[in-house]
Nucleic acid binder design. Structure first.
Lengths: 232, 232
DNA sequence: CCGAGGGCTTGATAAACATCAAGAGGACGA
DNA sequence: TCGTCCTCTTGATGTTTATCAAGCCCTCGG
């Protein structure tokens, strides 16, 4: 692993507080690998052999049942995924595939489990990380249960607007097909939802969106920190 | 706290492995309280002051947004709830209310946080508990995203059938109004969903349900351990 | 320059689900 | 005993969302 990659990983809240020794052990056993776009990394139902860390590119978590498919989440750099399955030594509940070319760090599951038994600071960091994961899924669940498709889109747009500096103009970070599946809707309905938001000052131009009536949009969206904010 | 209550709590996976000392400290600070039915215990958005343990009765976790309401889960004895918020010292993401008369153990949040910093076995138990919580919500999310209302009902019935001994006959543990909100549907649609299942050998008689074509029902329901099983 | 394919949009149609209204039946207290 | 309340069910209707089909536009390779 390149030194810069290692420093970035070391800087994550999950690894920041663990001992030098324990971190070195973990990194020794791990390896970095590049994957092409659209490659299946994990199939749900299989054991979790590695804790993954996304260094570059984006990974989609999804799930299947009875011929249907649903996107469960997107993982951006620099974040870990399938931590819970690794810790429990259980099968994965979700599948994962690369959206684009990705650079990933793979840490063998057994080493992660050994590390948290040996390093107390690490196990405390895991507790916070797992609590965050849990709360993230609860928020996603609330988003889906309480809001219509249009409302989910409106809040997602406001979220991007905040993240991208609040200039009244954003660029969608994904193509609309992927955005649709993140919002649990079909591409057709995403298109219609954008039309529904037109009277609220949402102007679409390819991946570029401008807002001419932010207050109106917020009145519709009614953003809520306990659904929309990462850090709550 | 009565001795028998204390023994039951001590026997939970979350508390089983912690030291005598640490458990005593926790219990000293805690207190048992009885609550009437339909009482609000927690409002989402408020700080998590206590870790709750349900000793008797059932508690509903729910959430509100923009005038709408959704049931997020039911807590049965003997189980804890709002662990994640307590550990993070964060606001609750869900509200909680008693369904019936309840006996609860309330452990002050600060004591829980102190305990996991002091007792390593406890922090390991917390990790497993949080991983379980996480995976439970992921399963609930999959259930909602991938299945129709009728399919969710069919799987819930099969689940009860297994839990209640597989005799071809079950008794619903909740009234149908609550069952409906657990299945994320209206009472009207639950009633219609039961009718849809009639051709699959599901006979309803108040809270008592008999199955005359389990194979047919399973063909429709397509139960999946990674959605329906508690222990996966 | 053309043609193929993919992303995106739009319209028509159908399925799933919620809402509103009404009524049957049972529990309970006056 | 009666009336009231509540649960549950059923029908009619409207909303939301998915599906199917078609077409536009852009890119890319020949």
């Amino acid at each position: 692993m390149r030194t810069t990659d290692m420093e970035v990983v070391r800087g994550l809240p999950l690894f920041r507080s663990m001992s030098e020794q324990a971190f070195d052990d973990l990194v020794q056993a791990a390896y970095v690998q590049n994957f092409p776009a659209q490659l299946d990394l994990i199939h749900e139902g299989e054991p979790a052999d590695f804790l993954y860390v996304v260094l570059e590119g984006r990974v989609e978590l999804y799930t299947n049942w009875n011929g249907r498919s649903a996107t469960m989440g997107m993982v951006s750099p620099v974040t870990t995924f399938i931590l819970a399955a690794v810790l429990k030594d259980a099968v994965c509940l979700m599948s994962a595939r690369t959206c684009e070319r990705c650079k990933l760090l793979l840490i063998p599951a057994a080493n992660v489990r050994a590390a948290f038994h040996r390093d107390e600071a690490f196990s405390h960091a895991i507790i916070i990380e797992l609590a965050d994961c849990y709360r993230t899924v609860v928020k996603a669940h609330k988003n889906l249960k309480l809001r219509s498709g249009v409302e989910r889109l409106a809040n997602k747009l406001l979220h991007y607007h905040t993240v991208q500096g609040g200039t009244g103009r954003i660029v969608l970070p994904y193509d609309k097909k992927l955005l649709a599946s993140m919002l649990a809707m079909t591409p057709e309905n995403l298109s219609r939802a954008f039309n529904t938001l037109k009277p609220y000052g949402v102007e679409v131009n390819g991946a570029e969106i401008t807002f001419t009536d932010l207050k109106g949009l917020e009145t519709l969206a009614k953003p809520n920190p306990r659904i929309d904010d990462r850090q709550v």
